[in-house]
Structures are given as C-alpha cells and as structure tokens.
Amino acid sequence: MDPPSPAVPGGETSQTLDRGLRLLHLVADAPGGLTVTEAATRLGIGRAAVYRLIGPLAGHGMLRRDAAGRLRLGAGVLHLARRAQPLLAEGALPALRRLAEQAGATAHLTVVEGGEGVALAVVEPSWTSFHVAYRTGARHPLERGAAGQAILAGRTGAVGPVSTAGELQPGAYGVAAPVLGVPGLEASVGVVALAPLDAEAVGAQVLAAATAIATALS
C-alpha cells in the first residue's frame, strides 16, 4: 500500500488557489485568450507553475486550450454561472420590487456577460396603467443605455446615477446606478419608463436600491 501523501501546508494551498482564481479572471478578461507565457507574465510566476494550474482547472472544465494553444474559459464556468445567476436574481428581487413600486417604472438588475449587459432580473410596477415590458435575458452593448453606462461608470469608481433617453428604445427613459462592493460582480440596478423621469428623486431611489442589493449579495 502506498504511504499517505504528505499534508500540503495551508499557506501553499491558499497561494495555489489564489493563483488559480487569478488565472481564471485573467483569461475571462482576455477576449482573444492568453498564451501560457502571457499568463505567466501577468501572474508573475514561471511557465511550469502555470501548467500546474492549468491541469486541475482544465480537468474541471474551467479552462481549455484552443487550436492555437491559447487559454480560454471552459464550459464549466458557464455551468457555475447558470447556477449562480438565479441566486443573484433572488437576492436582488426585494430591492427591485421596492424600486419598481416607488418609481412607478420597470426595475431591472443588469450584469456583465461576454462584454455586454444582460438583464438578469426584471420587476414591473403593479399600479401603473402603462410601463415598459423589459425581457429578462435582454442583451445590449454597455455603451448604450443607462444600465450599461452605469456599469462602465462603476469601473472608474463613480457611484452614479446615470440618466439616458431613447438609446435602447425610442421613447424610453432610463436611470441606473452601479452595484458596487460585491467581489466578482459587475452589475447595475435601474429603472426604465415611457416618460421622462425625475432624475433627482428617482436617482436617489435607484442609489438606495443599489446599496440594498450590494448588501444582500455580499
């Protein structure tokens, strides 16, 4: 019988885990993928160490190498994302319901996926005669619309809110703010309506919702 493997010191295990997670983030942020050399340079470690990280990550479907040998995210990441998204939506729903009722407008939580904004959760107000029908799963460029622009503003540290008119749909008005302080999440919360919104009043409501959602998801 083989002797038991020696225990790996906790510090080394933590460092390996940290490097593996950093590698996943680096690959996720590289649309064209990364070579092993590029990954090693950005992580500040040797190529051999990168290969040791790739093995288990690829085995779990988190990383893959394309025909050119570049590192790309694997299907396992999509599996985890699909499992996590309903939990994110569930955590945001109380704040979205409150925001929709306060503003009298359709409230939404938008997250970044594949370089675009995706509506993860949508709540319509219960008391208005007319409101915007905004479909969960709707995608749009981050540069267009209040939701995407709020996410971009959040990357610079700006809190918001951001207001737009007619950028995604003629006659639609939006106000959104970034959801900040949730590790690994780029998102915004906002409202969209068929009439101009009071930027000051609705902006304050949106900011309060962003804070509530960040607290719920942290």
Rank of each mutant, 00 (worst) to 15 (best):
R135S: 05
G190N: 06
A103D: 10
V179Q: 10
A176P: 08
A105G: 11
R139A: 15
Q102R: 13
V189P: 06
E90I: 07
S126D: 11
V192D: 15
S188L: 04
E124P: 09
G154R: 12
P178E: 08
A92H: 12
E124G: 10
Q85V: 09
L152W: 04
A147R: 00
A210P: 00
G115Y: 04
V112D: 13
P196N: 01
Q149W: 03
A158T: 01
E186P: 00
R155Y: 08
A201R: 15
R83S: 15
V179R: 12
T164R: 05
V192M: 14
L93S: 04
P170W: 13
Q149P: 05
A176N: 07
T128R: 12
V192H: 10
R83Y: 14
G91I: 07
R98Y: 01
G160M: 02
A210Y: 02
P86E: 14
G181P: 03
S129D: 11
S188T: 01
V159M: 02
A153H: 07
A195P: 05
A92L: 07
P183D: 09
A158N: 14
W127D: 05
G117H: 00
A84C: 08
L142I: 00
G115D: 08
A95D: 03
E113T: 09
V159Y: 01
A193C: 02
T211Y: 03
G145I: 01
L197T: 14
V202C: 09
I213F: 11
G166Q: 09
E200S: 10
T136V: 14
E200C: 07
G160H: 02
V192Q: 13
A119I: 04
A209H: 03
T156M: 14
A133Y: 06
G91V: 05
Y173I: 08
T128G: 01
G181H: 00
S126E: 12
A199C: 10
A153E: 14
A214C: 14
V159E: 13
E116P: 00
L142D: 10
G104K: 09
Q102C: 08
P141D: 06
H131Q: 14
A146T: 03
R82W: 12
H131F: 07
L197M: 05
A214I: 10
V175A: 09
A214T: 07
L99E: 05
A107Q: 13
G145P: 03
Y173V: 05
A100T: 07
A103F: 08
E143V: 13
T106G: 12
